[in-house]
């Protein structure tokens, strides 16, 4: 799929976990201020690819990465890792709030950056919680432990925490798989809101979710990118038989 001025661009990316060749010649451009979904069966490399974008795979022992990944036309290897992860945030499968207050969770990243101004911290906390559609539910108990929130609220808190440091890209790895349908619907609505200001890349097992929330969809299979097109094209009339078979459930 032709994407001009991508915010993230991958060229011929190969990745090995030891001898396991997990990503094979992946070339894929991510459109700015849009939602890109990555789908595929377990072990297809979709989460691995997501993690390469903000170099989370650097943390895994025995990983070897070849090829080029650029963020804003600059190789991600050239970025300071803290800066890269500030600008390319991540939300995980299981909500992982810190065992601190709701407020401290949000301003944590700012404190690390050395920001001490209380007014500024409060302002960012409120803005982030509003953007994450959580403010109305927690504004009267910002000092309560984040662990007292429900699973869906915790996940929105994690999104608010990612937003607080003003990222450009938000990577979401199965953000709803631990949530009930109502909490899932809230996160999906939130994704639709956030794409006005942010670029979102979401990995999901749930094809209907990919169809509902994304503008373009990439289908991975056994470490390869099989098809990448507008979401409507992929789900209405995919080009590749393997995509067709996967999304119609003809193989599991």
């Amino acid at each position: 799929m032709q994407i001009n001025d991508p915010i993230v661009g991958a060229r011929d990316v190969n990745l090995w976990y030891g001898r396991n060749h997990a990503l094979r010649d992946i070339s894929l451009n991510i459109k700015e201020k849009a939602v890109t979904a990555i789908i595929g069966p377990s072990g297809c490399g979709k989460s691995t690819f997501l993690k390469t974008i903000n170099r989370m795979t650097d943390l895994v022992e025995g990983v070897r990465l070849e090829g080029l990944i650029e963020f804003r036309e600059r190789p991600i290897r050239q970025y300071d890792i803290v800066e890269l992860r500030r600008r390319v945030g991540m939300v995980f499968q299981k909500p992982n709030p810190f065992p601190k207050s709701i407020y401290e969770n949000i301003v944590f990243g700012l404190r690390i950056q050395g920001i001490k101004n209380r007014g500024q911290l409060q302002e960012v906390a409120e803005r982030s919680l509003r953007q994450a559609a959580l403010w109305d539910e927690v504004k009267d108990r910002l000092q309560d432990s984040a662990m007292s929130l429900s699973g869906g609220q915790q996940q929105r808190l994690c999104i608010a925490r990612a937003l607080a440091v003003n990222p450009e890209v938000i990577l979401m790895d199965e953000p709803c798989s631990a949530l009930d349908p109502v909490a899932t619907a809230k996160i999906e609505d939130l994704i639709a809101e956030l794409k006005r200001d942010y670029t979102i890349v979401i990995v999901t097992h749930n094809m209907q979710q990919a169809a509902r929330v994304s503008d373009s969809t990439a289908f991975f299979l056994m470490g390869e990118l099989i098809e990448y097109d507008s979401t409507i094209k992929v789900f209405e009339n995919p080009e590749d038989q393997r995509t067709e078979d996967y999304i119609t459930g003809r193989f599991g």
Binding site: F235, E236, E244, I247, T248
Partner: peptide, 9 residues
């Protein structure tokens, strides 16, 4: 069943 692709068509 949320039909997709050829099934949907």
């Amino acid at each position: 069943q949320q039909p997709m692709a050829k099934d949907l068509r």
